[in-house]
Design a binder for these strands. Structure first.
Lengths: 321, 321
DNA sequence: CTGTTAGCGCCTTCAC
DNA sequence: GTGAAGGCGCTAACAG
C-alpha cells in the first residue's frame, strides 16, 4: 500500500503537491500534476480515507437510527435520506435498533466518537434525557416535534393529522371509531391519543378503550386486529390505522371474514404507501421521502441554532370510507 | 475535546498507560487506572475512533450494496446482515444504488479507500470485470453463484428453484406458464431464463415470449402485469412471479378484473414474505434472513480462500395453484 | 506555484 | 508495570 509520501518520492515532488492534486487544488503545474497522477497509477495508489478523516476531523458519514429497516415507512424515509446524502457526498451508517435502547446508545456513541458527523433518529425508544445528554456531541436530528427542546427536527403534526381523519369519519356519519398504533408511548402515539380524546370530548362521544389497538406495525398485526374485530360485540364502524401496511392487513382479513369495507367497517390508513393505492384505501398521505431529505439537510447543517420543520399531510380519498 | 495526551497529563501517567486502560490491557496498577478513569470522566473524554482506525488499519464497518433499501426482499436481507453485524460489533454502511453503476463503484471505492473492511453486494448492475478489478482491495461477498470466480458468495440456485416451481405447475396440469422477473440480465434472471427454456424443451412445450414480463419489482408492477394479462387472447394459465410483492399486486388486481385465482390463473410467488401468507399465496420460500447472516459471516472472514454457500429453498403450498 | 513542517489522536514496539 | 518515541497517512498553515 503506497502512501502519499511514496507518491511524492516517485513523482519527485513534495507531499503537499500530491495532497493538492488529490484534493483538486488549482495551483499545481501541469507537468507535476501529471507526474503525480502517473505515480498514482503506477503504484495503484489509493488514499486512506481514515487518515483524511482524522486530519480533517470529519467523516462524511451520517448515522440513521431506525427501529426496523425492513418496514415501508422507514424504507421510504431512508430513501429520502439517501437521496439527499448522495447529493451531498455523504454515506449512511444504518443502525437498526428494534427499539432496543442499547442499540440507540451505540449510535449516540458513534457520534461521540466522531465516527459519524451527525445522527438522524427516525424513531426512538430512549428517554429524552438520554438524547439530551448527547446534544453537544454533534448534530442530532429527530423525526418528531422537538420545538423548544434545542434539537432540530422535521415532523408531522400528528395531533392535527389524526384529528383531520377523525373529523372526516365523523362527517361520514361514524360515531364509534377505533384506531391502531404502533407503540403506546412513542411521542407520536401520545399526540394521537390526545387528539382521540379531544375528539370524543368535542363531540360528546364516549370513549371505549377496547377500540384502541396497540403494537400494530406489520401486515400480520392487521390480521390480528381483524380477528379481534370479528369477535367484538360492539365493533367500531370505522378504524384509523397509523400504517397503510397494517390497514392492508386488516382489510384483506376482514374481507375473508365477511366484514365488508366500507359498509361494515370504514378504514383510513396512513402514509399513502403503494399498497394503499393498490387496495383503494383512503389514507393520510405523509410525504416521507421529502421528510427524509429535509432530515438530512438539517443533519449536516452546522449552524448552532436548531431548526424545526413541519411537514404537511393530506387526506387521500379513495374507497374505504 | 480532550485527547489521550491531555488525559495522560491530568492523570499523571504516560499516554501508553492511558491507551492501556482504554483497551482493557491487564497490566496497569489499580491506582493509575483509577486516576486515568477519573481524568476521563472529569474531562468528558471520548476516544477519537478515526485515529484508532488509522492506527489499526481497519474500521469495523461493512458496506452493503442494495438497489433499493425500501423493498421487502432487500429489507429481509439487510435484517439478516444487521443481526450478524450486531453480534460481531460491526456497523453497516448502506449504499443504495437504484442499479446505478456509479453508485456501485462508489462502494467499491470505499473498500479501496479502507473506509470499510468488507463489502456485501446484494445485487449488482456492474459487469463482473468491474467487481473483479477490486477483489484484491478487500473482502467482497456476493449474493449470487460465483463458484470458480474467486469471490465468496451465498446464493440460491435459481435454476433449480425455478424448475421446481415450473414442475409443480406442470404436475397441476398447467401447460401455458408465464413468469415475471425484475431485470432481464441479472445473473439470477439469466439462470431462470435457462430453466424456463429447458422446461419447455423437456416437455416439448412451445415457448411464448409474450408470457415473460420484465421489470417486476414492486406491487405496482404486479398491477401492470395484471392489466396486460386481462387483454391477452392466449393468456397463460399460471404465472411464476419472482417476488411475493409483485404476486400480491397481480392477485389483487386480477380479482378486481374478474380473473379468478387459481381457477383462471394460478400464481406462485417467491420469498415467502408476510404478504404471501396473508394472501394465501403459494410461494417458494427463500431464507433471506439466514442468507444475510451468512453473507456477513463470509464478509468478515479473512482467510484468503473464497467460500461458497448454497441456501436451500422450499415450496410452500397455499391456495393459489 | 511549491516545499517544509507541524500536527490530527492513537497504537505499539522497545527498553527500563 | 510503565514510559519514551516512532509511526499510521494525510492536511494545512507558513514561508518562500
Amino acid at each position: 500500500m503506497a502512501n502519499i509520501r511514496d507518491i511524492a518520492k516517485m513523482a519527485g515532488v513534495s507531499v503537499t503537491t500530491v495532497s493538492r492534486v488529490l484534493n483538486g487544488h488549482k495551483y499545481v503545474r501541469k507537468e507535476k500534476k501529471e507526474a503525480v497522477l502517473r505515480a498514482m497509477r503506477d503504484s495503484n495508489y489509493h488514499r486512506n480515507i481514515n487518515a483524511v478523516h482524522l486530519s480533517r476531523g470529519k467523516t462524511s458519514l451520517v448515522g440513521v437510527v431506525v427501529p426496523f429497516a425492513n418496514h415501508p415507512y422507514f424504507g421510504l424515509l431512508i430513501e429520502g435520506i439517501t437521496k439527499a446524502a448522495v447529493q451531498y457526498g455523504y454515506h449512511l451508517v444504518l443502525v437498526q435498533t428494534n427499539y432496543n435502547e442499547s442499540r440507540e446508545l451505540e449510535a449516540l456513541k458513534m457520534l461521540e466518537n466522531r465516527q459519524i458527523d451527525a445522527l438522524i433518529i427516525c424513531s426512538r425508544q430512549s428517554t429524552w434525557g438520554t438524547i439530551e445528554a448527547y446534544m453537544n456531541e454533534g448534530s442530532i436530528v429527530l423525526c418528531e416535534d422537538t420545538r423548544g427542546k434545542g434539537v432540530s427536527s422535521t415532523f408531522v403534526d400528528h395531533y392535527q393529522a389524526f384529528m383531520m381523519a377523525l373529523d372526516y369519519l365523523y362527517d361520514n356519519g361514524h360515531r364509534n371509531i377505533g384506531y391502531c398504533v404502533g407503540r403506546q408511548n412513542g411521542t407520536n402515539s401520545l399526540q394521537r391519543a390526545v387528539a382521540y380524546k379531544d375528539f370524543h370530548y368535542k363531540h360528546s362521544l364516549s370513549l371505549n378503550e377496547a377500540n384502541i389497538f396497540h403494537g400494530c406495525y406489520h401486515l400480520e398485526d392487521g390480521q390480528r386486529v381483524a380477528k379481534k374485530l370479528s369477535t367484538m360485540k360492539a365493533r367500531p364502524s370505522a378504524l384509523l390505522i397509523t400504517s397503510d401496511q397494517v390497514a392492508a392487513g386488516v382489510m384483506t382479513c376482514c374481507l375473508e371474514k365477511g366484514i365488508e369495507v366500507p359498509k361494515d367497517l370504514a378504514l383510513i390508513g396512513f402514509d399513502n404507501q403503494p399498497i394503499s393505492k393498490l387496495m383503494h384505501l383512503t389514507t393520510i398521505e405523509i410525504p416521507l421521502v421529502d421528510l427524509g431529505e429535509k432530515l438530512f439537510g438539517q443533519a449536516i447543517q452546522n449552524n448552532k441554532e436548531p431548526t424545526y420543520e413541519e411537514v404537511i399531510v393530506k387526506l387521500i380519498e379513495r374507497e374505504t370510507v
